[in-house]
Computed example of a mutant assay.
Amino acid sequence: MDTSSYLKSVVEQTRTFAEWVDGREAATPVPTCPKWTLADLVDHVGATHRMVTMLVGEQLSEPSKAFAAYVPAPADSSQWGAWMSDGAAAAKQAFDSVADDAPVWDPSGAAAGVPFWSRRLFGEASVHRADAAVALDRQYELAPEPAAAALEDWLDTMTSRGYWENRSDFADGMRGDGETLHFHTTDAPGEWLARREPDQVVLERTHAEADLTLRGPAADLLLVLSRRRRLDAAPSLDLQGDRALLDRWIDHMDWVSD
């Protein structure tokens, strides 16, 4: 997927999200984010749209201005739908106005800029729509290829140098001696080998023998690895190898679950 495709999906998924949450009870719990209410979830998604819109639209080289311009969600939940849809549309306009190589700050540590943020907004939309689906008892669907792309975003973001350096709990939990985990989507192209090293998690797009292999439909892999569905609730997934390695991995995949 390219920047345009990512942002098209962000707008489409946000439209669905907005329809689900509009006018709903703000205090509704979000089981997949135990410390959040529905209001917190809406606030996070919509505020992220606006922060990224400023970062990309103004081509900011550091994030303080965008962070300081945080815009909370409306207190009246009947305004949530329009607020979320407007934020996604503004984000798409911002990306449409810049080239992929425009210099924009991002937290990955790889100076990925505009492409990083287009994929990250897509990944956020894909995962947080799953949160809303659980909270509101809605059916979550994501086609195989977009689900594989969202999984790529999740794995790449969570193993980035920036994440390692800024989350000491993740770094301490993921330090290893070469232990390997292989994730394989069966309904769309996608294979990843994660290797735990003392100073980083190395992620490769390859097929290889591993200490732990988890394979199955892309959407199910996405939901399990992002902690949006328990492994025992995803019978379509096939696990081979050391289950403890997977449990430890999932325990530390908590960027947006708290």
Results as ranks from 00 to 15, higher is better:
8 K>L: 13
9 S>D: 15
12 E>D: 15
15 R>G: 13
15 R>V: 04
16 T>Y: 09
16 T>G: 06
17 F>Y: 11
22 D>F: 00
24 R>V: 03
25 E>N: 11
26 A>V: 10
31 P>N: 09
32 T>N: 14
38 L>M: 12
38 L>P: 13
45 V>Q: 13
47 A>Q: 12
48 T>C: 09
49 H>A: 03
52 V>S: 05
56 V>W: 07
62 E>S: 13
64 S>Y: 05
64 S>W: 05
69 A>D: 13
69 A>V: 03
72 P>D: 10
81 G>C: 12
86 D>A: 14
90 A>M: 10
93 Q>V: 11
94 A>K: 08
95 F>C: 04
95 F>A: 08
97 S>G: 12
98 V>T: 02
99 A>T: 09
100 D>S: 14
101 D>M: 02
106 D>R: 07
107 P>S: 04
107 P>K: 05
108 S>F: 09
110 A>C: 06
112 A>W: 11
114 V>L: 11
116 F>Q: 07
121 L>Q: 15
121 L>H: 10
123 G>N: 11
126 S>P: 10
126 S>W: 07
126 S>G: 06
129 R>A: 13
130 A>T: 06
139 Q>I: 02
140 Y>G: 04
140 Y>F: 15
141 E>I: 02
141 E>W: 06
146 P>E: 11
146 P>R: 12
152 E>H: 15
153 D>N: 15
153 D>T: 10
161 R>I: 01
166 N>T: 13
169 D>R: 12
170 F>E: 03
174 M>N: 02
175 R>E: 12
175 R>L: 05
177 D>E: 14
178 G>Q: 11
179 E>Y: 02
180 T>W: 01
180 T>F: 03
184 H>G: 00
187 D>Y: 08
188 A>W: 10
190 G>V: 02
194 A>G: 10
195 R>N: 01
197 E>C: 08
198 P>F: 05
203 L>I: 04
203 L>C: 04
206 T>H: 10
211 D>A: 11
224 V>F: 09
226 S>L: 01
232 D>V: 01
234 A>H: 03
234 A>W: 04
234 A>G: 06
235 P>F: 01
236 S>Q: 14
239 L>Q: 08
240 Q>V: 07
240 Q>F: 00
243 R>C: 00
246 L>H: 01
249 W>R: 01
252 H>G: 00
